[in-house]
Nucleic acid binder design. Structure first.
Lengths: 339, 339
DNA sequence: TGCTTACGCTAAAGCGCATTAGCTACCCCG
DNA sequence: CGGGGTAGCTAATGCGCTTTAGCGTAAGCA
């Protein structure tokens, strides 16, 4: 590999044109202070020499770092969520790169590590703002970010203390859609296999489910899991072995749903003949499975775009609502059937 | 949100301690030139004031940007590959952040866009090196990166012109494992549903498959797809409607495999009773499906780690082999059965 | 003609750090 | 007791850019 080419600097451009650096800078940044002729000559030479502003120099001279960060803490093996996050990332990425922003991405193992990363990014002035997700009960991040004064947007759910703005999905509405569909198709004993209870959105969904399905809960009505395949299987077994077997089971995401279907079949039950199944998260697997799974859709890509836009508005001090909500829809497939 | 705190600078530290900036710098960078006492005092104050070096300033003063880039062009809707990429990213991320490197991530829509991003990153001196993947036939990127002099590692397959170093999976070995397993279990008419033919790894796998299964190919033996669910279904149908129905079908990834299973069933065939199925890519879905899918494993996380390590060695001018290979293994599950 | 304005440009400062050269004690050794 | 060496520090320079202040010239106006 050849040595990295020594890039031309602003001074190179200026001396070659016999003008000052400032004039060149004005021309390149579309500022007043140079004649149209000089401006054109500068731009032409810049293009010819493939000049581009040194990112760090620009940053140091007061321009922003044109970078936002995204930290993701994966303390559970949430294999099922992978697709969601990459699509979220994709959406955010699109908006950011359109506006010339870069995305610094980091995964951490614990919330403490995540705090350390956020602090470092902020103090090194490496990012203008950050995206965080998966708020937990008693999560230290909102207060921490507020203290740092680092613009941040919460992807996925409102901050109970209202310290951070967020883009959320209307979980209550999602649950209502599901329960309405199930009740409307004659189901009377509903159950819910949820995620880890310390995740706030799990908590919200659980509450919404209990409320919406109040008069038609199976027993037990809700069983928690850590989002793993194993617990998806065992939670489902607990449901069907309970005193009142459900005629429909709602799963918090597609991993749990897939595990649940397997568990139901293992117990000799047919989907949807004996038990209907709904997933709170849609993905390719829900469509591909047999039977295909009825699921709540919430396009993570669009979600990511909204998050990025919100963050950029925040970074640029543009006024905006604290909470933004995305309406979910339900896709009826084969796994739910009229009773 | 409170205004962002004005961070302390090196000068702040120095004046508060009554020493020069240089002394403080020496102390903080663990360089000779200061006494142990002063060093300790500097470090203590830095900690107290939560000082951290300004990233851009450091970068400008000659230290590297401590950042590597990863561009991903997704011109097909490769939903199935999502899990692979996020795990690759995870692996790379781990190694990089352990060494203090940040990861700049960008997705682009076309190879042209990707080239533009690479050029910009290089000229702005924003990254020290990059990771690229999915090499295609006649791909302009290796030559382009060589010309830029930007260190780069190819994730996924050797560069035919040997311009770039790479970390690859031994595709030929993977195919041999699969074919050996199938032949060893009595299958005699093998077929392969591959990905887009302009992807080099698809090309390599196809060749390896044809070679390994030379004396037991169904007809048609290989059908290409764009990795979409739809084409997975139709390709499979073409196989079973062909003159010589396969008794085992190999799919290039799990999305195709899932689609294939559906297609086989739709045609009244049972898996594995009538037709065995193998996926060249393992993931949660392969385990969760019924029947679970026999698949080739190649741990994308470990793969990502190897890629990142290789890139860092390259960036630091450490000697290293041009091509690094990872051995795949095969996991036998329910979708293949003795004939 | 003399005044103000506007234009097109230059010079210089500064962003926060790393690094090099230089300077002053002090110690060791002959 | 003097010279060389070294530890511990400071001053100054530069990285590549943006920005402010200032300067000369030409145009506009009375």
């Amino acid at each position: 590999m050849p040595p990295r080419r020594t890039r031309p600097t602003l001074k190179d451009l200026a001396t070659r044109l016999g003008i000052s650096e400032s004039a060149a800078s004005f021309a390149l940044n579309n500022r007043p202070g140079v004649s149209e002729g000089t401006r054109r000559r500068v731009l032409a030479l810049a293009k010819e020499l493939q000049w581009a502003p040194h990112h760090a120099a620009r940053n140091l001279a007061g321009i922003t770092s044109m970078t936002v960060g995204f930290v993701l803490t994966r303390d559970v093996q949430e294999f099922g969520m992978e697709s969601f996050y990459l699509r979220l990332l994709t959406g955010a990425q699109t908006v950011l790169s359109d506006r010339g922003y870069g995305l610094l991405f980091q995964m951490t193992r614990s919330v403490e590590d995540e705090l350390a990363v956020l602090r470092r990014w902020s103090e090194e002035r490496r990012v203008e703002g950050v995206i965080i997700s998966d708020l937990r009960r008693g999560d230290p991040r909102p207060a921490f970010l507020t203290e740092l004064g680092l613009p941040a947007v919460l992807a996925g759910g409102p901050d109970p203390k209202k310290l951070l703005p967020c883009v959320m999905v209307d979980d209550a509405e999602a649950m209502r859609l599901i329960v309405d569909h199930l009740r409307g198709t004659g189901h009377r004993r509903l159950a819910y296999v949820s995620g880890p209870g310390d995740l706030l959105h799990v908590h919200r969904r659980t509450a919404a489910f209990k409320l919406a399905a109040a008069d038609s809960l199976a027993s037990p009505g809700v069983v928690g899991t850590d989002y793993s395949d194993e617990q998806g299987v065992s939670a489902t077994r607990r449901l069907i072995e309970g005193p009142e077997r459900p005629d429909a089971v709602v799963f918090d995401n597609e991993v749990l749903a897939v595990a649940g279907v397997r568990s139901l079949r293992g117990a000799g039950l047919s989907v949807p003949a004996d038990v209907s199944v709904v997933s709170c998260e849609d993905s390719a697997i829900c469509m591909a499975l047999q039977p295909s799974l009825t699921a709540v859709q919430r396009d993570p890509t669009v979600f990511g775009e909204a998050v990025a836009r919100k963050l950029l508005r925040l970074v640029h001090d543009e006024p905006e609502p604290a909470v933004e909500s995305q309406q979910p829809t339900i896709v009826i497939r084969e796994s739910t059937r009229q009773r």
